[in-house]
Write a protein that binds this DNA or RNA. Structure first.
Length: 971
RNA sequence: GCUGGAGUGGCGAAAUGGUAUACGCGCCUGCCUUAGGAGCAGGUGGGGCAACCCGUGGAGGUUCAAGUCCUCUCUCCAGCACCA
């Protein structure tokens, strides 16, 4: 039989025209008879070119939208354009085009391209953020935020992109470069508009818990919000130079102090100096002030100036610590009252915490590095608490503990790079020299005594002391469970002079000299391993919790537990810090939503009253980037402001970040043409939150976070009905080039979907994108040309199936195949697992092809199952059948048929094949009724020769039987 | 470094703790064709002549039974990162 091919270039436009004319995808939002289902996609920027990524985003969701509709839901699946933005303006700058015209023409092009996909968007709800009808409400919402102190103008260090000539939000800076153009950003101190997203940090964080989102999406948001708990502590500052006025006072006569933020107030006794960021207000004040506060003002000024010049990236690149001491002042430790030096260094960031830290070099890597370089004191205040968990000597947690003090000494040979170790004959340990401290003996005395007793060596000296490590272990020879405070010493043998060793010592252990590497390998005690690392490594800083030492009255307490008490004693307060910064929304660009603000002659900001909204974007502007907002060149805007508000009033010339526009568009879809309100309260109550929001991973910490914040702010203003805008969130993977590389024009691996559609048809492309992998997992999918050919081949086989239809009733095999496919597909599509849904469809087609004939009903069911995936082909075949054979219900479109349903019981078989295992290994299989008893199953299994030969006596000692699943026999 | 996710055939991938590799690609064999980069039929994890044995990154463990659960470890991807 010659293969028949369907003609997609005829069928597809025909079907698209039919759907348009009959408006079958328009949804009545007030229809209460059906369950509402809001399926949202991230609306695209009208670049004028629909790429493969768009296809992936829209095709998968379209299949789901069709499925939900067939299930009887009232589905809202809208489309719109995120239409403000830089490319339009760049077209204006480079090619002299009108940004408005450029944008609207692109929208026309893209609408036509989207139609060729066969997507079932409801075009009657379309919004475009650049239309005055839309941005009127962006401005209105901004005004509400302003009224509630959630939008404010403030001076701050902001990121400036010199290429795009505009400021950027933190979220738009990737590794110190502009997210949009890749240019390195600079820092500038400017007065700009901010939205107070930080006020919502805690709620944005905690409300994530209840959302059924993928863990990686939640985690990315958590990381971005960056919560850390700790304490704010105040350090008073004092002058050295002016003893008669020992306390520096501020203008109000209060003692000057610097607040630091720390997550480790428990290490306060180890704070040996303070560090201020170069931007720290106190530093700037000291340089500006009249008093001669600093004795090295010139050096400090030079350092601060230098730091200011560096971009963030340059600061990051040079990881070597730099800084200058502020001489002439000292800080007072709040508990010991000791004076400690103060530095300015750029490893402390002005924008995080208080812009100042207390440095605890013994327990912080960066402080340690700085302290080492500037030769500052390093005081250990936390002793690690190491529990010996493996033998020999594993700590017995349920037995009494004896507390002792001891030494752990690393002793270098007098002439070689070798270290003394003891091999214990009875327990098999290799240890350093250790010993318990007795009476008033110091660690050094103890070590020297032990050295003589155990080894006979008499000439040694202590080189350095390395603090204390607590070890919890079982002392095997003494049969004692112990907590030992181990004093770590580095020693050196000065000669090989030896006394005789007592014979009872001699037999207990053997003296060995080991290299560093041998030591690392052979030492078994955790505390000894730690001691070796501590001594050999230049950067071994203990940053975990442990037992406090050198901490006055807090010594010997657990660091975690003492944290609150130390904070209180130091007069500090427990605080929480967030990495998240307020959202900078001013942009010095033209093609965006004008900020609805004017300034009175004193420069005070006022909202443009609602009756003047939309506050129109003027058209008489000069687009040339100059660092000044293009709106400042508009005479019309200036005149408008003077006309309405009076002489001396001036306009705000910046526009809003386009992420503001996109933070609320999904509410506008619910009342896109309403002139009285931003959305409809009534409709929102039924349709929010969005049931499922599908988008790209790149927006996880941008749009997705912004719109959650925006929505929460609106919730607090009683404008929206719920606390969270999106119930489910799906991030899709990326389609990459056939070569496995990211698609880019320069690599020449860009797939143009229009060409593929022209060759294979939209249905084949939709099927292909469904089949490449699970949509709800992160990952990249290379575009494979063979894959799309395979899908077209499959659709041709589906088309050929129609010749098998006949009036004969359905066979049982047909029924079962359909039921199986339907049940599997229903579950899979629900979870966006279209790859396995398509696989089920293929299994169904494979089964139907083996049938002599297919019943009309069965064929109709098959078409219905295929219809969300291949809407055009199925519409065509459905029309052929209903017109020519009249065997199916005569709805206007196959897309108005309900999704099939089958009773699960149809799938129960009289006999199934189950595996037979012997001791868990599969040895055979039996065909048996799923309701068979254990006895029957065992009997059937034993009649298999393969199984029977394992049981010469005839009876297994144990039987595990799961009806219809598995039979496991234990001999 | 921290946080999260993932490692299964030649490839994309599938498996409520119960026959690992469904479905597809690719490849192999055959049929049909003037021809085929079309179509159709069959085969395809590794080893072995075979009975069988081995196989889900690696090492342990729990279980009658582990890709799936637990512990450790390696690799890759993503987010954050001089964040105190």
């Amino acid at each position: 039989m010659a293969k028949e091919f369907y003609n997609h270039s005829e069928i597809e436009p025909w079907a698209q025209k039919k759907w348009d004319e009959e408006k079958i995808y328009e949804v009545d939002l007030s229809d209460q008879s059906k369950d509402p289902y809001y399926l949202l996609i991230e609306f695209p920027y009208p670049s004028g070119d629909l790429h493969v990524g768009h296809w992936y985003a829209f095709a998968i969701t379209d299949i789901f939208a069709r499925f939900k509709r067939m299930q009887g839901k009232n589905v809202l699946y809208p489309f719109g354009f995120d239409a403000f933005g830089l490319p339009a303006e760049n077209a204006a700058i480079k090619r002299g085009l009108d940004p408005r015209k450029w944008t609207y023409e692109n929208m026309d092009t893209m609408r036509a391209q989207v139609r060729t996909m066969g997507a079932s968007f409801d075009w009657s709800k379309e919004v475009a953020t650049c239309s005055p009808e839309y941005y009127k409400w962006t401005q209105w919402l901004f005004s509400r935020l302003f009224e509630h102190q959630l939008a404010e103008r403030k001076e701050a260090a902001v990121k400036w992109c010199p290429n795009d000539q505009t400021v950027l939000a933190n979220e738009q800076v990737i590794n110190g470069t502009c997210e949009r153009c890749g240019h390195e950003v600079e820092e500038r101190i400017l007065t700009q508009w901010f939205l107070s997203i930080t006020k919502y940090a805690e709620r944005l964080l905690t409300d994530l818990e209840g959302l059924p989102w993928r863990e990686d999406i939640k985690s990315a948001q958590r990381e971005w919000i960056g919560k850390s708990e700790g304490a704010k502590l105040a350090f008073a500052l004092s002058f050295k130079k002016h003893p008669e006025d020992s306390e520096w006072r501020d203008v109000d006569g209060n003692p000057a102090q610097v607040a630091v933020f720390t997550t480790r107030p428990d290490t306060l006794f180890g704070a040996t100096y303070l560090v201020l960021a170069p931007e720290h207000p106190w530093v700037l004040a000291a340089l500006d002030g009249e008093h001669d506060v600093l004795s090295n003002e010139a050096a400090v000024r030079a350092y601060v100036e230098e730091a200011k010049k560096k971009t963030e990236r340059e600061r990051m690149e040079n990881k070597e610590k730099t800084g200058v001491q502020l001489t002439g002042i000292m800080a007072i430790h709040p508990l010991t009252r000791e004076e400690i030096p103060v530095f300015v260094a750029d490893y402390v960031l002005g924008s995080y915490g208080t812009g100042a830290v207390m440095a605890v070099p013994a327990h912080d890597e960066r402080d340690f590095e700085f302290a080492t370089k500037f030769e500052l004191p390093i005081v250990q205040v936390v002793a690690p608490r190491l529990v010996q968990t493996e033998e020999p000597g594993a700590f017995k947690s349920d037995e009494p503990v004896t507390i002792t003090d001891g030494v752990i000494a690393l002793i270098r040979h007098w002439s070689e790079e070798k270290y003394l170790a003891l091999k214990w004959k009875n327990v098999g340990w290799t240890t350093l020299l250790t010993g318990g401290m007795e009476g008033d003996d110091s660690a050094a005395e103890t070590a020297l005594r032990e050295l003589r007793e155990e080894t006979g060596y008499t000439d040694a000296r202590v080189v350095e002391s390395y603090g204390i490590v607590d070890g919890l272990f079982y002392h095997v020879p003494k049969e004692q469970n112990r907590l030992t405070h181990g004093h770590i010493l580095r020693m050196e043998l000065t000669s090989d002079m030896r006394d005789a060793v007592a014979p009872e010592e001699e037999v207990r252990h053997e003296i060995v000299w080991l290299s560093k590497e041998e030591l690392r390998k052979q030492l078994t005690a955790r505390t000894h391993q730690y001691a070796v690392e501590q001594i050999f490594s230049d950067h071994y800083v203990y940053t975990d919790a442990g037992t406090l030492i050198n901490s006055g009255e807090y010594s010997n307490r657990e660091s975690q537990e003492a944290m609150a008490d130390i904070t209180d004693a130091a007069g500090g307060e427990r605080t929480t810090n967030y990495r998240l910064r307020d959202w900078l929304v001013s942009r010095q660009r033209y093609w965006g939503c004008p900020i609805p603000v004017v300034y009175d002659p004193e420069g005070k900001a006022h909202l443009v009253p609602s009756e003047h909204l939309p506050w129109l974007l003027p058209t008489d502007v000069d687009f040339t980037p100059s660092g000044v907002s293009p709106l400042a060149t508009s005479k019309e805007l200036k005149d408008r402001v003077t006309g309405i508000f009076g002489e001396g009033w001036t306009p705000e010339c910046d526009t809003l970040d386009t992420f503001v526009d996109s933070s609320w568009y999904f509410m506008r879809y619910l009342a896109p043409h309403d002139e009285k309100q931003f959305s409809s309260t009534e409709v929102m109550k039924n349709w929010l939150p969005v049931n499922r929001y599908s988008g790209g991973a790149e927006h996880t910490t941008l749009h997705l976070l912004y719109s959650r914040f925006f929505y929460k702010a609106m919730y607090d203003l009683a404008l929206v009905p719920t606390a969270e805008p999106f119930y489910e969130r799906y991030n899709r993977g990326l389609i990459i080039g056939p070569d496995g590389q990211k698609m880019s024009k320069s690599k020449g691996n860009v797939i143009n979907p229009d060409e593929v559609v022209a060759k294979y048809g939209a249905d084949a492309v939709r099927m292909y994108l469904s089949f490449i992998g699970s949509y709800n997992e992160p990952g990249n999918y290379p575009w494979k040309p063979e894959g799309i050919e395979a899908m077209r081949r499959f659709l041709d086989r589906c088309y050929a199936l129609r010749t098998k239809t006949s009036d004969a009733p359905a066979t049982e095999a047909e029924q079962k195949a359909l039921a199986k496919a339907t049940i599997k597909m229903s579950a899979d599509i629900e979870r966006f697992k279209l790859n396995t849904a398509v696989s089920a469809l293929m299994i169904l087609v494979n089964a139907l092809e083996t049938q002599d004939h297919i019943s009309h009903d069965g064929f109709g069911t098959f078409l219905t199952l295929l219809s969300p995936f291949a809407p055009h082909l199925t519409e065509h075949m459905y029309a052929q059948i209903s017109v020519n054979e009249g065997a199916l219900p005569s709805e206007q479109s196959i897309h108005q048929l309900p999704w099939p349903s089958f009773d699960e019981t149809l799938l129960t078989e009289d006999a199934v094949i189950i595996g037979v295992q012997i001791a868990g290994k599969r040895k055979g299989e039996i065909q048996i009724s799923p309701s068979a008893t254990e006895e029957e199953a065992v009997k059937a299994a034993l009649s298999e020769p393969n199984v029977a030969k394992a049981f010469p006596t005839g009876t297994p000692s144990r039987v595990i039987y799961r009806a219809g699943k598995i039979l496991n026999l234990i001999p």
